[in-house]
Structure formats: structure tokens, C-alpha cells
Write a protein that binds this DNA or RNA. Structure first.
Lengths: 242, 242
DNA sequence: CGTTCCCTTGAGTAGTTTCAATACTTGTGG
DNA sequence: CCACAAGTATTGAAACTACTCAAGGGAACG
């Protein structure tokens, strides 16, 4: 369960793993779950990257990105029909858990039920930050902000380097993430590169001075609930509740 | 519970109401819950309007609006510390439910627990639509879209008229909602008025042709999970599950 | 070694913000 | 009832930001 693993007892981690009844390799661009479809299982991302996407009037938009260890559609369990699509970014490995098993487990394990709920609330908190940043930042800053977010999330699951990270993201993906156009993203990446803030080359992110990038993007990681004033340790550590 | 009441049995509705241990009248602009604060209760909006707000680098932003019947911070139950502020828009009446009571109730009433979870997932779905619309619509369309959303939500709880609705919203609020400026909002409202799409005067919304407004805003209400291809009746009606 | 996908650049246009200034409304006290 | 104050709404002009259309360049993969 990636970053949430620390909040699980050894026994609980075993319970979660036993829920995964099937794994699957998916190729780049594969739509794992399409808006409006009824599903009887939820998905966990084991390797690679997954996107939440929505079709706009003309272009597709990316609403969220996920890293290994994330539950991708725990909310499909309560919603049954999703409002958006789940799409693979690059090749990925996913695991499936049946809703029937989840339902039984959640009645027997209130602490785990609450953790699953928490993971969907975390998605909402990230959405809110995206709304805020779309409202107040220019496209170059939004790109920088997204890079900071991705970097921070990869850090949490040990997939980042000290000077950056790798991903299958293209410039057109950054356009769909920031609500801009590939051409404008291209120019903004050039500016970021020339300002020595960050280099983005075919998904490879390289940055010498993370502090400057964070400052430029006005990035405050607390909305990821990993550390800082909103951190979850109090209420989610195994010793603290129910 | 407003729009979710239809998904409750008579007994369950009673259970929910018994959770409200205290009500309070709050004045315009009052911050009911501030980011980072630990709380031991959750809030239901009984009368008036409530906003989710976040402080940006210079200006405040509005991330969501709530109408009577909405649970405002059910997610505070699982998150304990919120990432945003809860602010009254105009005078409002709210009720409080203690987290301890909620926890006990949710263990005894899995169906209700799931409904509460659903209400937080609904917020996330609305966030996603806002992100999408901020990415693809111009400010005039975003204003129209927000008006459509508000109108639809008020419809669900019987607080709208056939030709519009009233609210304490100011033009500057629309600016904070759409991520724009009061001055630009003012011009866009003039354009909307001159195009006979919708009139907005000090919170009073008047529209003769709702269909045209919906089309202009590219508004598709299904993300509100009230009707249409994502509607919740299947999985949330009292007869259907657990 | 060529095809395909992705990235890059230029020029013109559209949308939005900012600054500065002016009016309208609403409520309050004289 | 009028005058004033505070908040809210409106307008103009200039600067900035981002988009569109059109074309060219480069890297990766077979």
C-alpha cells in the first residue's frame, strides 16, 4: 500500500495483500476503467503510472496522477460508476480486489476501512490544491508545481533521486495536466530550463536546486498529508485509533 | 440530509438526526473551521450557504460551495485536520455531530457509513469537474457553469425557482470561484446579460432560457450524481445494498 | 535509413489582468 | 427624509499571458 503501509500492522498488511486476487500488465494508454462503467473490483497500482482523465469538449484532460502503491479507484467501491476514466501512462502493473471481499473486510476491520476512506480523501485534497493553483499560478509555475508534487509523491515511495526523477510524461501530458497547450508548455519548459530551475526532457526531470523550484512553484507539500501541519501520523498510526 | 434523504430509511433518518447534538447560527464570513485545526465534530448545513476556501499567496480562493442539507466536513472525521477553511457565505444555520458518536454509529450502520463516504466522494467528483472546466472554459463560460451547478444543487433540495435562484454571492465571490478577478467577472457578467443568457444582480440569478445557458456553459449535471448515467439510485437506494 | 512520434520556433490573435478612476446601492444617523 | 459612508459594481486603456495556425527539426525505433 505504498505510503500508507506505515499505518498498517503486519497482520493488516497481510489482509490487504490477500484481497488482491489478480494482477495484470497493461500497456501505455490503456483505459482500465471508463466513465460510467459499473465495476465489481477496485485497482491498486503496483508498478508504473496511472492517470485520472476526463474527456473535455475537444481535448482530454488529466485530473490526477498516481504512483506505485496508490489505490486508484477505491471510490469506485462506493460510487460504483466513476465520473472519469482511469488510464495507464506508460506500461504498468496493477492488482485487482473484488468489491465483495472489500465489503466484508471493511465490516470486520474498521481501522482498514478508515484508511481506505482516508486514501480517497487524500485524492480530494490534491484536487483542491490543483484548483487553487490553476487559479493563482501562471502556466510555467503550474508546471513547476506539478513537478514538485510528482517528485514529493515519488519520494514517499522511494522512487525519486536526489536530483530528480524519471517518468513517461510527454510535454503534451503536461499540457493536459496544466490545462494548457503543448506549444505553450514547450515554451515554458524552455524558460524553466534557461532560468536553471528545472530540466524536463522526455519525462526525465533534473533539478539542481530543489529549494528554488519549490519557491518558484509556491509548493507546500502539506496537502499530501505526508508531513507538516496536516500530517496524518496522529490519527492514522496503528496505535492511535479504533 | 437534503438530497441524500431519499437513500435513507425512516429509521436511519432518525439515527442521523439524533447525531446532531448542537445547532448554531453563524454570521456572514465566519470561519467555522480553519485549516490545520483538530476537530472532534462534523458539521451539517441546515440553512444558508457554506464555502470551502483556501488562502492563496495573495488572494483567497473558493473551492466549493454547499447548500442546505450538505454534510460539510464529514472528511474531517477521517482527516482530523483539514487542508482548507470552512467559511459561511451570508448568515447560516449549522448543526454539529460529535466524532465519537459518528464512529460508533458507523460501526453499527454500515449502510449509513457508506452514504457518508459517498458524500465525501461526491465532493471529489465536483472538484474534478471544476479542474476540467478551469482548463477548458473561458471565464464567461466558467461563470455560467458555476451558475448552472448552483442552480442544479438548489433544485435538488427544493430551493430554486423555475427562472433562477437567490444567493448572497457577490461578483468578487464569482471571481474567487472562477479563479479570475472582480473586474473581469464584471465585464463577463455584462456580456452574459447582453447575450440574454443570464442576469446576475447582487446574488439574484435570473434566466429565461435555462437550456441556452446550459449549452453555453457545456454543463452536464451527471457529475452531481443526481440523475443521468452516473446516478446513484442503483447502489444507494435502501433496498439495493448491505 | 526512413518513418513516426515528439519537440521546437515564429508570427499574429484572443483572452485576461492591472491600474486608475467613476458610479451605483444599501444602510445608518442626523 | 436627506446626507453620508461603506461596500459593491462599472468603465477605459495599456500591458501581459496564453492560444492558434503554420512550418520545421530532432530523436528513437524498426
Amino acid at each position: 500500500m505504498g505510503r500508507l503501509r506505515q499505518a498498517l500492522t503486519h497482520r493488516e498488511a497481510g489482509v490487504v495483500e490477500s484481497l488482491i486476487t489478480r494482477t495484470e500488465h497493461v500497456e501505455d494508454g490503456r483505459v482500465l476503467l471508463r466513465r460510467g462503467t459499473t465495476v465489481e473490483h477496485s485497482t491498486i497500482l503496483i508498478e508504473g503510472y496511472i492517470l485520472r482523465t476526463m474527456q473535455g469538449s475537444d481535448k482530454r484532460h488529466i485530473l490526477a496522477t498516481h504512483v506505485p502503491g496508490d489505490f486508484i479507484d477505491m471510490h469506485a467501491f462506493a460510487l460504483k460508476r466513476l465520473d472519469h476514466d482511469i488510464t495507464a501512462l506508460g506500461p504498468a502493473l496493477v492488482g485487482y480486489a473484488r468489491h465483495e471481499d472489500l465489503r466484508i473486510m471493511m465490516e470486520q476491520e474498521p481501522h482498514l476501512a478508515r484508511l481506505f476512506w482516508f486514501s480517497t480523501l487524500l485524492d480530494a485534497a490534491i484536487h483542491r490544491t490543483w484548483i487553487l493553483k490553476m487559479g493563482e499560478l501562471r502556466v510555467d509555475q503550474r508546471i513547476a508545481h506539478f513537478i514538485c508534487e510528482m517528485w514529493a509523491k515519488l519520494d514517499m515511495v522511494g522512487l525519486a533521486r536526489a536530483d530528480g526523477f524519471n517518468s513517461p510524461l510527454r510535454q503534451s501530458d503536461l499540457a493536459e495536466i496544466t490545462g494548457s497547450t503543448p506549444i505553450h508548455v514547450n515554451r515554458m519548459l524552455r524558460d524553466l530550463r534557461e532560468a536553471a530551475l528545472v530540466e524536463f526532457r522526455r519525462g526525465r526531470v533534473h533539478c539542481r536546486d530543489r529549494g528554488r523550484l519549490v519557491q518558484f512553484a509556491r509548493f507546500d507539500p502539506s496537502y499530501l498529508y505526508g508531513a507538516g501541519d496536516l500530517a496524518m501520523h496522529d490519527q492514522l498510526s496503528v496505535t492511535a485509533i479504533s
